[in-house]
Design a binder for these strands. Structure first.
Lengths: 335, 335
DNA sequence: CTGAAAGCGCTAACAG
DNA sequence: CTGTTAGCGCTTTCAG
């Protein structure tokens, strides 16, 4: 069996509680005994059993991240921010992939609750039934959501300022003189996306010389971007600029443009959203709205940590982080 | 306080050990009492405390994944495979990012050992000192490495057949008639990479009409691929094909080629390694050697699971998974 | 089939 | 400053 606090106590000739004190806060213990205990512990290669400790303290020192799929570079970046923030409090991060399947998501959450995680960071609760959502609110473990959803008054949330991102995209295109503008995006119900769309459309319509963009909804992925923009350019070949709801959809639009022999940005301007790493690698480097993904993960875990400490007043807390226009080479003046 | 097994016992009028039996294996308990207990438990919304259980059973039901950076799409894919495999045994996956910093890596490992994880999946131990490596071997927790390193006889390992990948790349280029061939890769000490290089170079040299490739070492990233191939093409403009040690380096080479006005594959053929998602999205779609990343994560966790069960004979176990040539559009016949 | 009791390894009062 | 003691919530003999 592994070596325990008892062994250290016996070997140092003191009581286990003294060992515990010496090894933890260390205060209220004679420096000499403390040193002795510490040296014995290290000689025996003692490793405190944190699960035992967790049982008595009620804190597991672990947080969980439930995302649809870690292979999505957006979530990978969030995960890194979350893991780094967790580490500052000696917490570790449990990774769960839900594929947005409500059943899987609840299975994971239940298992996490049984493991007594100190907090859960989730990308969405919208696929969940009302009962399941209610259960989460009541469960006693702090939860922060990675967006603002209808149900989110009861949850803490962290999100980027999606609407402002839409505004930025519209302003940029307007400034470049575009008048035939389109927007390809994901499903209508998607909370974050409709904020982007709203900011974008409104800004265009409120312009001195108003523009009414064409808005197309489809799958929120590469194929969606590719197919939607193919349809768009077939029906509206006069289009000079496209705002894609995220970078991957923009990549799909790039593919379509290339396939149709269009040059970017000479014939078609393209603007994305997210600023994932590959937007600077792809050709042409993509102009996009930067979302502070790392910082979002970080902020979420910071909230979780605070909530985990204050077992008393646990008011949901929300943060909206700023976005930024990253000008690269996929947008040009109206041709 | 949360509701415990005692509450369920009291409410059902049986002893806690009966509750435990009823809720777990359930065998050796009267079906009637079992049903009663189950219904009471669900009525009270009882959540078994797995940390308490872990304390007595000695299994935490969690695995850890220590990678350099989850934002690397390669590791994200491995992570997904690992998480899915872990889930089949109700284990969860703790994510740690080391940035290949030996200090950080050992900090994480120690913390994981204290948490009594059932196994650790690590991308490398080579940055660690000999003492640290020895400590890992002795630590009593199964460890599997994501490559075959010098020290790895003592560890279980899972890796792709890197050498075979190099062979495949060489054969493909040879078949297309290339004679002026180069290889851009990462640092010399990198175990996996030297296997790729060896397979590649040897195949070229053993060909009926032997070719001696130019091999360039540099940073194992986009910039490395970009800068190395820039140097290469400046000094050896006659080069018609480049094998990059991974896709991201290949993307760097694409950038360089485009910057120099070269067309791919007409003027320059390019082949990568990994088959990350973006290699099919980039233009032109990249021909590459597919590494079964998901399956590697999966296989590693399967080994860990087996080792975690057999606390007795724990022979390190190794698996080498096959690779595959994915033909896309970045390679053409010698121009 | 069920109950009683011991104990996993640790922390946290409470005495002294 | 240090030892004693009582658990944390659960599983697991061992009796019955």
């Amino acid at each position: 069996m592994a070596i325990t606090i008892k062994d250290v106590a016996r070997e140092s000739g003191v009581n286990i509680s003294t060992v515990s004190r010496a090894l933890n806060n260390g205060y209220g213990v004679n420096p000499q005994t403390r040193d002795l205990v510490v040296s014995v512990a290290s000689r025996l290669n003692y490793r405190p059993n944190r699960v035992a400790r967790g049982l008595v303290t009620g804190r597991s020192h672990s947080m969980a991240l439930v995302v649809s799929d870690i292979r999505n570079p957006f979530f990978a970046e969030v995960a890194r921010g979350a893991a780094d923030a967790a580490r500052t409090d000696n917490c570790d991060l449990i990774l769960c992939n839900s594929d947005l399947d409500p059943v899987r998501q609840m299975e994971y959450v239940k298992s996490l609750l049984e493991k007594r995680v100190d907090g859960i960071l989730m990308n969405s609760v919208s696929p969940l039934s009302a009962e399941d959502q209610a259960e989460l609110v009541e469960c006693g473990v702090p939860i922060v959501l990675l967006n603002r959803s209808a149900a989110s008054k009861a949850f803490s949330t962290v999100s980027a300022d999606n609407e402002a991102g839409g505004v930025l995209a519209a302003q940029h295109l307007l400034k470049l003189g575009h008048r035939k503008i389109a927007h390809v995006t994901g499903p209508r119900q998607h909370g974050n996306l409709s904020d982007r769309t709203r900011g974008f459309v409104q800004t265009l319509e409120d312009a001195p010389r108003p523009v009414t963009p064409i808005v197309l909804h489809g799958p929120f992925n590469f194929e969606g971007g590719r197919d939607l923009s193919a349809r768009l350019l077939a029906e509206h070949p006069e289009t000079t600029a496209i705002f894609a709801a995220n970078d991957v959809m923009a990549f799909g639009a790039v593919r379509t443009a290339l396939d149709r022999g269009l040059r970017i940005p000479e014939d078609l301007s393209l603007i994305g959203f997210d600023n994932i790493e590959f937007s600077s690698i792809i050709h042409p480097p993509l102009t996009t709205i930067h979302q502070p993904k790392y910082e979002m993960g970080q902020a979420a875990v910071e909230i979780l940590l605070r909530l985990a400490r204050d077992k008393t007043r646990r008011t949901p807390e929300s943060r909206v982080l700023g976005v930024e226009l990253i000008e690269r080479q996929s947008c040009g003046r109206r041709s």
